[in-house]
C-alpha cells in the first residue's frame, strides 16, 4: 500500500461524505432502487472483468453464477433457515466450484468458440433450473418474510439501508480489486492476455491462471447474485438466467472500460442510469427507449472503444497534443 498522503485522505473522506449524503438527498424508493441496482451491476462488472478483461476470455454465460448466488441464498434460507450473511459466502464457494468444473472444460477453447460454449452451457443451466422442482422450477423462489429479523436476514424495510449496505460491498470489492491489480496475479493475467505463448515461454502456467481468474469472477458475480436476491426477495430463472443478462454483464464492463479497475463501476452507473430513465420517459413510444439505448451503446463503443474510463485520459492527451502543436511553430 502506498503511503497515505494528506491529499488522499481528504479525497477519501470527500467520497465517503458524498456516498452517505446521496441517498438522503434523493430520498424516494425509486432513486434508491436505481442506486441499489447500480451497485449490483457494478459488482457484476467487476467480477466479469477478471475473466473478460484481465484474462481476455470473453465469457457470455456469467448469468449462471449470478443465478447460483441468488438461489443459494434462497434455498439455504428455505431449507436450513440460514442467514444470508453466511449463505452468500457459501454461494461464492459453490459458484467457484462450478466455475472450476466448467472452466476446466471450456477454457481451452479460444475466442469465439469459448464465447459460444459459455452461451450453450448457460442455456443448459437455465433449462436445468426450469425443470428442477426442488428449487422452484419455473415458478421461482420467494424469500420474503416480514417476520424475520431484518438485520440478521438482510430483508430491510427501508431501501436506504440497502443502498448503504450495497455501496459498502462495492467499495470493499473495489478496494480488493485495486489491491489485486498490483499483485503478480493480475500481472501474469495481463501477460497471458497480451501474448499467451510468450507468457508460457516465460514460465507462466496460462491454463491455471485463467482458471483462477474464471473462478474469481464467478465468486464475485455470485456475490452480486446473493445481493440481488436479498433485494428483490423473489426470483425465477427468466429473471436472472437469460442470455440477455449475460450480455448486459459484458456490456457494462466494456462500456466502462474493460481491464481497468474503475471501468466496470462507471459502466454500471452510466448504463443503469440510461436504461432506467429512457424507460421512464420514452417507453410509451413502444420501444423507443431501447432503440435509444442501443444507439447510445453503439456510439459509445464505436467512438470510445476503450470505455468511458478512458475519457479523462483522452482529454489529457488531446490537450497535450494541442500544447505541443502550439509550441512547434514558435521554434
Amino acid at each position: 500500500m502506498k503511503k497515505l498522503s494528506y491529499k488522499k485522505l481528504l479525497l477519501c473522506a470527500g467520497i465517503l461524505v458524498i456516498l452517505i449524503v446521496l441517498p438522503l438527498i434523493f430520498n424516494t424508493a425509486f432513486s434508491h432502487h436505481i442506486m441499489t441496482m447500480m451497485c449490483i451491476w457494478a459488482l457484476l462488472g467487476m467480477g466479469w472483468n477478471f475473466i473478460g478483461g484481465y484474462a481476455g476470455q470473453i465469457s457470455n454465460g456469467h448469468a449462471i453464477y449470478y443465478a447460483f448466488g441468488a438461489y443459494t441464498n434462497a434455498m439455504l434460507l428455505q431449507w436450513f433457515n440460514l442467514s444470508p450473511w453466511i449463505a452468500m459466502w457459501i454461494g461464492c464457494l459453490l459458484s467457484a466450484g462450478i466455475a472450476f468444473l466448467i472452466g476446466k472444460g471450456l477454457l481451452r477453447f479460444r475466442g469465439h468458440v469459448f464465447a459460444i460454449a459459455t452461451m450453450a452451457v448457460a442455456e443448459c443451466v437455465r433449462l436445468i433450473f426450469i425443470n428442477t422442482k426442488a428449487i422452484g422450477g419455473a415458478t421461482g423462489v420467494y424469500i420474503f418474510n416480514a417476520e424475520l429479523d431484518p438485520a440478521l436476514y438482510m430483508q430491510f424495510t427501508d431501501t436506504k439501508t440497502y443502498v448503504y449496505l450495497y455501496m459498502a460491498f462495492v467499495v470493499a470489492v473495489l478496494l480488493f480489486v485495486r489491491w489485486l491489480n498490483t499483485t503478480k496475479f493480475c500481472y501474469y493475467l495481463r501477460a497471458i492476455n497480451g501474448n499467451e505463448t510468450a507468457a508460457e515461454s516465460a514460465g507462466i502456467n496460462a491454463a491455471n491462471y485463467k482458471l483462477w481468474a474464471y473462478m474469481l469472477s464467478a465468486a464475485i458475480v455470485s456475490l452480486a447474485g446473493s445481493l440481488y436476491m436479498q433485494f428483490m426477495r423473489y426470483t425465477d430463472p427468466s429473471m436472472i438466467l437469460t442470455s440477455n443478462i449475460s450480455m448486459m454483464i459484458v456490456l457494462v464492463t466494456v462500456m466502462g472500460g474493460v481491464g481497468t479497475v474503475y471501468g466496470p463501476l462507471i459502466g454500471a452507473i452510466v448504463l443503469t442510469y440510461i436504461s432506467e430513465y429512457t424507460r421512464v420517459y420514452l417507453s410509451h413510444y413502444n420501444g423507443l427507449d431501447m432503440v435509444i439505448y442501443g444507439v447510445l451503446v453503439i456510439l459509445i463503443v464505436l467512438f470510445i472503444p476503450d470505455g468511458l474510463i478512458s475519457i479523462p485520459g483522452r482529454i489529457r492527451k488531446h490537450r497535450e497534443h494541442k500544447a505541443a502543436v502550439k509550441e512547434a511553430p514558435a521554434k
Binding site: 413510444y285 432503440v291 439505448y293 442501443g294 476503450d306
Partner: peptide, 22 residues
Amino acid sequence: PILSQRLITFALSMVLVYSAQM
C-alpha cells in the same frame, strides 16, 4: 478491439428489434 465488435452487433440487434417493434 474484438470485444467492441461483438458488442456493437449486439447493440445493433437491440436497435433492430425495437425499431421493428416500433
